[in-house]
């Protein structure tokens, strides 16, 4: 289990990175939409996003659209690579299962 990235290797953070990895490399998702898609509470999502942001796996961009502040979340290049490495490690650990 030593090869599995501890930042991703937690249920909530794995769900977040898996969801973000379905977006294109230059795409981002708003915080409320990500919360809706994952069915997580705002507080819990914030907590885990902060851990991923600290590791530089996700970027959190705050912009003003119209007159409202909007927070966009995306996987960074490093985060996408780490997620792919994590998936690969899981598969090889399980003997090449898909």
């Amino acid at each position: 289990m030593a090869d599995l990235d501890p930042v991703i290797h937690a249920q909530a953070r794995l769900r977040i990175t898996s969801a973000l990895a379905t977006l294109g490399p230059k795409e981002a998702i708003t915080f409320p939409r990500l919360q809706e898609v994952l069915g997580m509470t705002a507080g819990n999502l914030s907590t885990h996003l902060r851990k991923l942001e600290t590791a530089d796996y996700v970027s959190v961009e705050k912009v003003i659209e119209g007159r409202s502040p909007v927070t966009y979340i995306a996987l960074t290049t490093l985060g996408r690579r780490r997620f792919e490495d994590y998936t690969e490690s899981l598969r090889s650990l399980l003997g090449g299962a898909s």
């Binding site: 289990m1 599995l4 290797h9 937690a10 249920q11 909530a12 953070r13 794995l14 769900r15 915080f31 997580m40 509470t41 705002a42 507080g43 819990n44 914030s46 907590t47 885990h48 996003l49 902060r50 959190v60 927070t71 899981l90 650990l93 399980l94 299962a97």
Partner: peptide
């Protein structure tokens, strides 16, 4: 993102197959 007074959950891992 704002802070919320809430105990974070989902910090634990399952076995590799489940993950």
């Amino acid at each position: 993102m704002s802070d919320f007074d809430e105990e974070p959950t989902g910090d634990e891992a399952l076995d590799p197959a489940e993950m």
